[in-house]
C-alpha cells in the first residue's frame, strides 16, 4: 500500500476533464487499497505536498500548467516520484512546435507546419508572412495554438479568406500558433504503456470515428458522439507501421511510464499529429478503453502506471 497524492483540476481549459480523470483514478487507487489524497493546483499545493510527503504523485492534470513540465519539475525538486513523463519530455510533447521538430529530425512523418509567435506579430509585422506560409503548405490547412490540449482554438481553413480570423482565434489560446498542412485519412490513437522494468509497448490501436464532422473537444468527451473501433480496421502492414512509428515517437520525445500517440493514416503512412503525456482516463477516453480491450481492467492499468513511478524512484526523468 502506498500513500498517493492524486493531482487533478489545475488551471487549464481541460480542468473539468482533469477532475473526471482524477476521480476515476482516485476510486481505482482506493479500491486497490492505497491511501489517496486528492489535491488541486492552488497556492497551498506545494506546502500540502511537502507536509503529506506521499510515496508518489499520480498526475491527472491535462493541458498547460499540468502536462507541460511545470508540475513535474516541482515534484522532481520535492523528491516525490510521479507518474508519466519528465519535465523536458512533457514540454516537448505539449508544445506541438517542439514535438514536430524533434519527430521530423528522427524521420517520423508529421504534417508540414509553420510556426508563428505573438511577439513576432507585434515586433516584426510577422502577419505579412501568413499568406506565404499558408500557400507553401497548400490549402486546406489547420490553424491551432501550439500548447493547448484538446481542440480549443483549432480551425480548418479552406482558403486565404479565413486565414487571419483563424490565426486571431488561435492566438486567443496561446502566444505561439501553428499553421499545419491538412491530412486526410483514418484517425488512429496509439496508447503506449511502459510497466516498471519493462520496455514500452503498444496497448492496441484505437480508430476514432466521429459521428459527425471533426473530432473536437465536445466529441472527445461526450458519450455517443464518437465511435471507436478497437483494434483499428487498418491493413496488417499499416498496423505494424503504426506501432513502430508510435514507439519511435515515444522514445524520440523521451516519454516515461505511458503516453498516447495520435496519428492520421494517410495513404498507409501514419502521420503523427500529437503526443499526449497525460492522456485522459475518463470513461470515454481511448487509453483505458484500449487497455480494457486487451483484458486489462482499469485498476490494473492504474496500478501499472503507479508502479512505474514508484519503482523508478525519484531519479530524474528526461
Amino acid at each position: 500500500m502506498a500513500r498517493v497524492a492524486v493531482l487533478r483540476g489545475g488551471h487549464s481549459m481541460e480542468r473539468d476533464v482533469s477532475f473526471v480523470t482524477g476521480r476515476r483514478v482516485q476510486h481505482a487507487l482506493e479500491r486497490l487499497g492505497h491511501e489517496v489524497h486528492p489535491l488541486d493546483i492552488e497556492e497551498g499545493t506545494t506546502a500540502a505536498l511537502m507536509e503529506l510527503a506521499p510515496d508518489a504523485a499520480f498526475v491527472c492534470l491535462h493541458g498547460p500548467g499540468g502536462e507541460d513540465g511545470t508540475v513535474q519539475a516541482l515534484l522532481e525538486t520535492l523528491g516525490i516520484p510521479y507518474t508519466g513523463s519528465g519535465p523536458l519530455s512533457s514540454i516537448r510533447c505539449m508544445d506541438k512546435d517542439y514535438a514536430k521538430r524533434a519527430l521530423r529530425a528522427s524521420g517520423i512523418q508529421t504534417p508540414p507546419s509553420r510556426t508563428f509567435l505573438r511577439r513576432a506579430m507585434n515586433e516584426m509585422g510577422a502577419s505579412a508572412a501568413l499568406g506565404v506560409a499558408a500557400d507553401s503548405l497548400g490549402y486546406p490547412i489547420v490553424v491551432k495554438p501550439a500548447r493547448e490540449g484538446s481542440s480549443f482554438g483549432l480551425s480548418r481553413v479552406e482558403d486565404q479568406d479565413g486565414l487571419l480570423d483563424a490565426v486571431y482565434e488561435a492566438f486567443g489560446y496561446d502566444a505561439k500558433i501553428l499553421l499545419e498542412g491538412w491530412v486526410d485519412g483514418t484517425e488512429v490513437s496509439v496508447p503506449i504503456l511502459e510497466p516498471a522494468g519493462e520496455e514500452p509497448s503498444v496497448l492496441g490501436l484505437v480508430e476514432i470515428r466521429p459521428r459527425e464532422g471533426t473530432y473536437n473537444f465536445e466529441a472527445k468527451y461526450t458519450p455517443g458522439a464518437t465511435d471507436f473501433a478497437i483494434p483499428a480496421e487498418v491493413p496488417q502492414e499499416t498496423a505494424v507501421r503504426l506501432r513502430e512509428t508510435a514507439l519511435t515517437a515515444y522514445h524520440t520525445l523521451g516519454c516515461s511510464g505511458y503516453a498516447r500517440v495520435d496519428t492520421i493514416v494517410e495513404n498507409d503512412t501514419p502521420q503523427v499529429i500529437d503526443v499526449k503525456t497525460i492522456p485522459g482516463f475518463t470513461e470515454t477516453s481511448t487509453f483505458p478503453l484500449a487497455a480494457e480491450a486487451t483484458g486489462m481492467v482499469f485498476e490494473e492499468l492504474v496500478e501499472t502506471v503507479l508502479e512505474s513511478a514508484l519503482r523508478g524512484g525519484a531519479q530524474a526523468k528526461l
Binding site: 509585422g125 510577422a126 502577419s127 505579412a128 501568413l130 486565414l163
Partner: peptide, 16 residues
Amino acid sequence: MERGSRRGKKGGQRSA
C-alpha cells in the same frame, strides 16, 4: 496583424 498584412501586400505578396 492588420498592419503586417498590409505591408505584405505592398511587398507584392499574396497576403491574408
